[in-house]
Design a protein around this nucleic acid. Structure first.
Lengths: 248, 248
DNA sequence: CGGCCCCTTGAGCTGGTTCAAGAGATGTGG
DNA sequence: CCACATCTCTTGAACCAGCTCAAGGGGCCG
């Protein structure tokens, strides 16, 4: 479709950003829209005591605050976690796009809803799962998302998050994240080390996590193994853009 | 505005629902839109172990899943918590409204964004606050929301939630919710009993909670009493992320 | 080579859980 | 109007998952 070209065009002005840098800071007035093209970022909030809580991870293809124009003030910050490449799009362009291209509008809307479901899943995880389930669940989420944007090779993918970052996302201590990762490693389920996650046993991981992959509206397929029947072949496969890595 | 009349009209078909009844169940195909007119409800998710996590509370005026039409499957359930009055609106009507009345569309969109900010605040609370802060923070949220829909009289309002429900929302045990409530009571900050919450000291409550009322885009006003110039209790921390680099 | 992260592991502590038991409430049927 | 059942709240006591504090090791970069 030409929609893709329009989106490409809109991402013309790109910028490289080093790791650990705020793109948007809490209290800011919503400005331009950012689209993450490469690297990882996160939304987070700082507490008075100085602790941090990450509320979501952003991967290539994700957008920052498409809809926030209604508000006076950002309620959270967004920062890169790794070196990243970012497109900064004037809000006007987005609005024009949303008025003229219904498919794009719908894709945006859909992305928004997926985000919200993910957020709810985080609440569930942090509220009711123990540390092992929590880590496992997050890994499942990231695995599925990485798969959707084609970042999986075999049963591994690059996961350049420090244990401290994972802790800030999961509501755990870095120390304890470390212990959980060890536990998952020695039980032969997965191994996160040196920036890449290797999942030895997806099924077991999902089982431990109590992972329900519906919430990303994708099926969790293990790379090999074929006994499973794909029950709904007609699912929205004419994929709207937002969840794919569009450029690059 | 006549927008109000249109919305009234759309709520013509009302229904009374007893407490503890599912309106929408996880796995359902999104059906009609529900608007809560009276009483309390919640979104929740059940875990395999049988525990429950509530992800948000719904109060009169809140809508269920305006936008979910895009999805095949609901990712969470919605249930009444008290006896309630509910309008069931055909999705078609909503769509017509959203095409013809821009003000209404904008209001819906705004509500959606507020919900999302609230959800993020829950993640922060559950992830990084201790039990007392957590309870206090939720009470602040509910207080502000109750105020916004005119449910506050003086410094009290009706809060018909059991301690078990609060626990399911906060990721705590009912037993522990009880102990926290006692602590808040004897420290003279607030008193929740027999279905009504009396806030003796809003400022102190917000302080304990680390409550940042921006996220509902409303100011936290105390009804009477005014010795304290309570600007916003947050904003201690405008440090850019770099300053957090030494993770302590 | 030296400094700075980040990861790793140990040991002790604590906030919140679990289990248990009793006391109010509130409703229901006789 | 009372008797009984069912919830919810309340409190105690023991326990444990995850935290804190501390110390050492490895990789990467200047």
């Amino acid at each position: 479709l030409e929609d893709v070209e329009l989106l490409d065009a809109v991402c013309a002005t790109q910028r490289s950003v080093p790791a650990q840098q705020d793109l948007i800071r809490e209290g800011d007035e919503p400005g331009p829209v950012f689209i993450l093209l490469k690297g990882w970022a996160c939304r987070y909030k700082l507490l008075p005591e100085g602790t941090r809580q990450i509320t979501s991870f952003l991967m290539p293809g994700d957008c920052c605050d498409l809809h926030a124009a209604v508000f006076v003030r950002m309620e959270h910050s967004i920062a890169t976690l790794t070196a990243a490449r970012v497109a900064r799009v004037d809000r006007k362009h987005i609005e024009v796009l949303m008025e003229t291209r219904p498919a794009i509008t719908q894709a945006f809307c859909r992305a928004q809803l997926v985000d919200e479901d993910t957020l709810r899943a985080w609440v569930v995880s942090i509220g009711r799962r123990d540390s092992v389930q929590r880590v496992a669940h997050l890994m499942c989420e990231l695995y599925v998302r990485a798969m959707n944007i084609g970042l999986i090779s075999g049963n591994r993918f690059e996961l350049p998050l420090t244990q401290a970052m994972l802790g800030d996302a999961l509501g755990l201590t870095p120390v304890h994240v470390n212990r959980v990762l060890r536990k998952l490693r020695i039980s032969g389920i997965m191994n996160l080390s040196r920036g890449t996650l290797v999942i030895a046993n997806v099924g077991k991981l999902a089982l431990v996590a109590g992972f329900d992959d519906h919430y990303l509206n994708r099926r969790l397929r293990r790379p090999s193994s074929g006994s499973e029947t794909n029950d709904s072949p007609s699912r929205h496969q004419s994929e709207p853009w937002v969840s794919r890595a569009p450029l690059e």
